[in-house]
Design a protein around this nucleic acid. Structure first.
Lengths: 344, 344
DNA sequence: AGCCGTAGTGACTGCGTTGTCATTTCTACC
DNA sequence: GGTAGAAATGACAACGCAGTCACTACGGCT
């Protein structure tokens, strides 16, 4: 096999080509592209820039990374982009990353720990400058990351995982506030639709539900467990409306599930919010377009995304960075029973 | 500034470290990791693998790319992941890419041509092995790509763009079939909610709507133009239900828009499908959870994703590859008026 | 003994870049 | 006219890897 066959396709302009065309040395080209240590005369800079444009020159990222040790690439893992909440978060993180000069490599774990581990390998192999993980399976910064020294940030349930930083919403307090709102509407029998018990997020939201009921001295309504998915919500919703003593209100731990619950109620001819009031969590775009529109606890997604990227930037600079917990906001719409005048 | 400060963080194991620990030469390590040209004795291979595992060695992708000229990275541009159709497609492409040993770098254009152009620069700079573009703005393979020799594939409206390959659904035929279904339900006055005129996809679907009406000798109902978004659909839907002679059925050019139209109908107390029957396009996951569930033209997303990645693989091997057009399938649910027994 | 094939060696090149270094050329100011 | 300082030079060393090349060592086979 000839050596040539293992080389890159020809024709891509290199720094030397630009230098030649502009009539300068290769060092000057680098000075221009990277605001180098030496100043470059405006006229020369212009010549270089023109030559680069004429040749369609783009510095080879692989060579640059090899030299500088930085890739300007961040890796992010989400379970599944067809869950709008995750999609929104990924878009927000991308925006924040781009603002800091990074590209974002998003990969889907499909909630598989094996795939998550694979992805960590892939990311470290690609020498990403930071990793942002959103896992519904479990915290694993410490375990999987192991020897890696890559800045690591988690959107998760627990603050202060040993290995890295976590940015999360106060799931418990949020759930508590949502349920409290239902109580203020006069409901006394309030059910819960929530994710699998092993998911930390689900657990926190469940505890928040209990908190609010305890605050009001109310007994706990029935609990329905299902996947964090539309189908899971549908299943749980059907069980709810068919149950002997169905609650008059339900707190649903996520928008996607709430979408399914609403469908189940419609199927059974249950009127919302009169016969079944609903408050859910996330307030993703789709929650505004259900019928009735969902009252939900909104997460400050953009803020969280900014904070995560900022933290990675700081970690890279060896500056101190801290985990943070954000609070949610109640978005009143129709599903809780608020009048249209209050609802958005 | 010392040289050291521009180097990568220390501690990451290199090939030489592995070779030393395994007591072999560096070449052998490469032979093992890449199924090199020389065979390696099983015992030696095992020693190398163990050493690599012990050190947590991962070949540096930048160095490897620099040497081989391939990055095993594909770039994909989508307008916006919070449109579930795009999110689904991105996930499908990722799955197909991973099956071929590539990672997928997804970026969002937010339907901005400038951002699209930026992304093409970023991608070529990163030396991606292929680019997959989904643009609602216009075809631009020829223009933007210019001198780039990177394999380029488009999910779009037009087959046979000069610069590259296109994989698309037969929007026109799909729309025609959807409208035909409404006609079969006895509707004679059928409106259209469609995207901006400049979007090629919107145009094709509009023509399909006209086709079906012409086939049946029906006059064209009113046309409502709006963004390809939930908000756009809501706006169009409001205009529709408030119009003097509202149609009894409407073909909506996308699920996201249909979500808004349904909401508008609910707000106005218009019963679906009795007073307003709806057929839409895409059949994304959310279309199954609206009330009523949407009858829609389904795209073979997985097939399209596979075909696109496969085409890139072929192009890289200088094998012939062809553009392809896929057909859609009518998914009967409730919004068209089909009885529950037929509806899924 | 002679020979062949397999397994492994160790030194080396080049991928495109960044940034250093010692030196030279140019410009402007006194 | 002399000189300081800025601007530019050209050569060079990495970065980590793939893969080549010319060899050697060691069996087993005839």
């Amino acid at each position: 096999m000839s050596t040539a066959s293992t080389q890159a396709a020809p024709g891509r302009a290199t720094r030397a080509d630009v230098a030649k065309l502009a009539g300068v040395s290769t060092a000057v080209v680098s000075y221009v592209t990277n605001a180098g240590p030496q100043s470059v005369a405006p006229a020369t800079r212009k010549r270089v820039l023109e030559a680069a444009a004429a040749l369609g020159y783009r510095p080879n990222a692989a060579a640059r990374s090899l030299k500088t040790g930085a890739t300007q690439l961040l890796g992010m893992v989400i379970p599944d982009a067809t869950n709008l909440y995750f999609a929104e978060l990924a878009v927000a993180v991308e925006t924040a990353a781009v603002a800091h000069g990074f590209d974002l490599l998003v990969a889907h774990s499909h909630s598989s720990r094996e795939r998550e581990a694979q992805l960590m390998h892939s990311f470290t192999s690609r020498q990403v400058d930071g990793i942002i993980m959103l896992s519904t399976v479990a915290d694993q910064s410490a375990t999987t990351l192991g020897a890696t020294k890559t800045p690591f940030v988690e959107f998760g349930c627990n603050i202060g995982t040993p290995g890295g930083l976590a940015f999360t919403v106060d799931h418990r307090a949020g759930a508590r506030e949502g349920v409290k709102h239902l109580i203020e509407h006069g409901h006394t029998r309030i059910g819960l639709v929530v994710g699998p018990e092993m998911a930390g997020i689900a657990h926190s939201r469940e505890v928040g539900w209990m908190d609010a009921l305890a605050d009001a001295g109310l007994r706990r309504g029935p609990i329905f467990r299902a996947d964090f998915s539309r189908a899971g919500g549908l299943e749980a919703g059907r069980a709810l409306v068919e149950s002997a003593a169905a609650p008059s209100a339900v707190f649903v731990a996520s928008d996607v599930q709430a979408t399914g619950v609403i469908r189940a109620a419609h199927e059974a001819g249950v009127r919302m919010p009169d016969e079944l009031a609903i408050v859910s969590f996330d307030a993703s775009p789709e929650s505004e377009y259900t019928w009735p529109a969902l009252t939900a606890m909104q997460q400050p997604i953009d803020e969280m995304a900014d904070a995560a990227v900022e933290a990675i930037v700081r970690l890279r600079l060896s500056e101190p960075a801290e985990s943070r917990m954000f609070s949610t906001t109640l978005v009143r719409r129709a599903s809780c029973g608020c009048p249209p005048s209050v609802a958005q």
